[in-house]
């Protein structure tokens, strides 16, 4: 079922303020179109008035400061994959970018769009969670920053108002000495929607886990930061018993569903297995 094309409006914003003006008037943003155009083609796009933010310069660059890297919301996956600092300091993000869609969709798809599309299966979300990302939202009323882990409230529900635009994603640059792990489990090796996407980082002091962050996608209504499991691990030394306990903890913490792509039991078991695999790399 296709949409009735003449029903839809689209304007291309050249400047950030133009886009914000239009959002204030009830228009909805579209970036690379790799999610929204799929909905549109399937006759399922709920908005009729769209403003393209793809050409807004302020949204399309990656900036570096001493303390953080700021990625404009309309930065594409291709740009992320090729960025030398991201490759060096945030390799999990570059991996996730390389697993998102195809080359053609990475050329168009944007990190901001992926966040706002709010799919629990988004490959970049677990990475942003373990990197402690912050989001900067902007509207005509001003800007605000919120931790990404507080952003998703429920299935496709977010802490963002209709007149607000996701401006940028900030990643704190304190990643040294961390061990990191990422794995996507999808139905095939490319062009795949994750059945489970798992990311984790940890810092060891001696044999003890000093700091650990674990997140997973496709296992809950939102991309899930696994706080309960982290607390089981924090301060402990890796041992077979600890690995078993943590695996049980994450199996209890995730709330996957059965759908046309996979089953609840599989997603739960795989998440636990990936956690084990990660913890074994720390031992």
């Amino acid at each position: 079922m296709r949409s009735f094309v003449p029903d839809y409006e689209l304007v291309v914003a050249a400047r950030l303020n133009d886009a914000l003006d239009m959002l204030a008037e009830g228009w909805r943003p579209i970036a690379g179109g790799t999610d929204l155009m799929v909905l549109f083609n399937a006759g399922k796009l709920p908005y009729r008035k769209l403003v393209s933010i793809r050409r807004v310069k302020e949204l399309s660059s990656i900036e570096e400061s001493e303390t953080e890297i700021s990625i404009g919301a309309a930065v594409t996956y291709t740009h992320i994959r090729q960025h030398p600092v991201l490759r060096q300091e945030f390799p999990l993000l570059c991996s996730a970018a390389s697993w998102t869609g195809s080359i053609a969709n990475q050329n168009r798809g944007t990190l901001g769009g992926n966040i706002i599309n709010a799919s629990p299966a988004a490959d970049s979300s677990p990475v942003l969670l373990v990197y402690d990302a912050e989001l900067e939202l902007i509207s005509l009323r001003g800007t605000r920053r919120i931790p990404y882990c507080d952003f998703h409230l429920g299935y496709k529900k977010m802490q963002i108002r209709d007149d607000e635009l996701l401006r940028s994603i900030h990643l704190p640059r304190k990643t040294e000495n961390r061990r990191s792990y990422i794995r996507k489990v999808g139905p095939r090796q490319a062009q795949a929607i994750s059945k489970v996407c798992f990311a984790a980082t940890a810092r060891l002091r001696g044999s003890a886990i000093d700091e650990v962050r674990i997140a997973a996608g496709s296992v809950a209504p939102v991309p899930l930061r696994c706080h309960a499991t982290e607390s089981v691990l924090r301060g402990q030394s890796i041992s077979p018993d600890l690995i078993e306990t943590a695996a049980n903890a994450i199996a209890a913490e995730v709330q996957p569903i059965t759908d046309i792509r996979s089953t609840r039991d599989y997603r739960r078991a795989v998440t636990a297995n990936l956690l084990k695999q990660f913890l074994q790399t720390l031992a």
């Binding site: 799929v38 139905p187 095939r188 090796q189 490319a190 062009q191 795949a192 929607i193 046309i260 792509r261």
Partner: peptide
Amino acid sequence: TNYIMPTAMD
């Protein structure tokens, strides 16, 4: 997207 045939990577 949901009926999975092999890609060049598979």
